Amino acid sequence: MDAADDRLLLLVEDDEDFARTLARSLARRGWRVLHADSLPAVQALLTSQRPTHAVVDLKLRGEASGLACVRALHAANADTLIVVLTGYASIATAVQAIKLGACQYLAKPSNTDDIEAAFARTEGDADVELTARASSIKTLEWERIHEVLAETGFNISEAARRLGMHRRTLTRKLEKRRV
């Protein structure tokens, strides 16, 4: 394996403008970048490519979430370093991403420096500062909503049913907390 193969990155992002900008930035730093915008596109790429690294957006258009892409990438090659990048950060989705094979979880906005630093931090940090502040009711509700969304594969109707609320109510709550 030559040096170029050591830096093959799969970018899973459905926002074409953001994907193009991030891919250019990574390419300037020596990465070979492949792009996919959905789970089927990831699965198709994995039949012929073996990325060493991946950056996966958590919220993709369509049925599959980025978590399904993390699972597919990890199943194809457990050595692939995967960073989940999201504007919809929650503890529930962070935990699921790590359980499915991601090495790091970053909230947007994040830049190329943050992503490269995340690839370098594959081990946990036992010295991370713990906060004494308890979570608010709103934060707990938000995290529970995201936990159920992750469990249902981001199916809003099913998540609303499991949460005991109307689908429109859940949709309104999600629209209010856009990051």
Rank of each mutant, 00 (worst) to 15 (best):
D79G: 12
T152I: 03
R50P: 06
M1N: 08
A159E: 03
L130E: 14
Q49D: 10
D37N: 08
M1A: 13
L170Y: 08
T86P: 01
K138C: 00
A68N: 03
L174T: 07
E158P: 05
A92C: 09
F119N: 02
A41C: 05
T152Q: 11
T131Q: 10
D17Q: 10
L140C: 12
R7P: 00
N155G: 01
V42C: 10
A3T: 11
G62L: 02
A36H: 01
T93K: 01
T86S: 10
H53L: 11
D114N: 14
S110Y: 04
V95R: 12
E175C: 00
L10H: 05
L58G: 01
F119W: 14
K99F: 05
A132T: 12
L85H: 12
R29E: 15
A126I: 12
E147F: 09
A118G: 10
A64W: 07
A78Y: 04
D125E: 08
E158R: 14
A126Y: 11
A102F: 03
Y105G: 00
I137D: 14
L130M: 12
A72L: 03
L11P: 04
L58C: 07
C69M: 03
P40V: 10
G66A: 04
A132K: 08
A107V: 11
L22Q: 10
A36L: 06
L73W: 03
I82Y: 02
V148K: 02
K173N: 03
P40Y: 09
A120S: 14
S157Y: 01
